[in-house]
């Protein structure tokens, strides 16, 4: 009986010790997509952008942004609440030189609960598909994903963390970010 009690106490202690780390890991995983390596695609690509700053590197990157530069100042406001910005972008010299299956595997992950598609565009004429997804939790955007594929180019963007849509809005006209009609969840409450 005493041995069983000891085992229970040990298990409880283990749970108490590992729970915060597990919760942090879950928080980090929320909104994070499993992006394929795209190693074969990168070999064929004429131009590649592969950005993978995790939370630690993102924090360093944010600190190094120059607040005197308006573009970087707005980026700094946006990135302080982010945990990761992941971009895979490839350009090719010929049409459809990339396998669509890799892109579809990412698109399938976005059918998980919480993700909402806010833009879906299919152009058969231009062979261009664009999807924009937002992960909403407690009326807050906790993740953003963009999948855009064109005949000679495809891009996957995954932004993880609390995205202040007001700040994203502030980037309009600076990075060429257009007004997508994304409204912050705060706005209706403020009107009351």
């Amino acid at each position: 009986m005493k041995r069983i009690l000891n085992i229970h106490v040990a298990l409880l202690a283990t749970v108490l010790v590992t729970a915060p780390a597990f919760a942090q890991s879950v928080a980090l995983q929320r909104g994070l997509l499993r992006l394929p390596e795209f190693a074969r695609v990168a070999d064929k690509a004429s131009e590649t952008v592969n950005v993978t700053p995790g939370s630690k590197l993102l924090g360093i990157a944010c600190r190094f942004l120059d607040t005197n530069d308006p573009e970087e100042a707005d980026a700094k406001k946006l990135c302080t609440s982010l945990r990761g910005v992941f971009v895979r972008s490839f350009k090719f010299d010929e049409d459809f030189a990339y396998p669509k299956s890799d892109i579809d595997s990412v698109r399938r992950q976005l059918s998980a609960p919480g993700w909402s598609r806010i833009v879906e565009s299919r152009s058969k004429k231009e062979h261009t598909d664009v999807d924009v997804f937002v992960l909403i939790e407690n009326d807050k955007a906790m993740g953003l994903a963009i999948i855009a594929n064109q005949p000679r180019e495809f891009t996957i963007v995954n932004i993880v963390g609390a995205i202040d849509l007001e700040n994203l809005h502030d980037l309009e006209g600076k990075f060429g970010v257009p007004n997508l009609g994304i409204e912050s969840a705060k706005k209706p409450a403020e009107k009351k």
């Binding site: 944010c62 980026a75 990135c79 990075f175 060429g176 997508l180």
Partner: peptide
């Protein structure tokens, strides 16, 4: 890292622009 972040945000904005033009 900050250059990479700015590149990532530029690519993001380009694709949001593409989405905007499509919509």
């Amino acid at each position: 890292a900050s250059r990479a972040l700015m590149d990532a945000l530029r690519v993001t904005s380009q694709k949001l622009d593409l989405a905007y033009q499509a919509v």
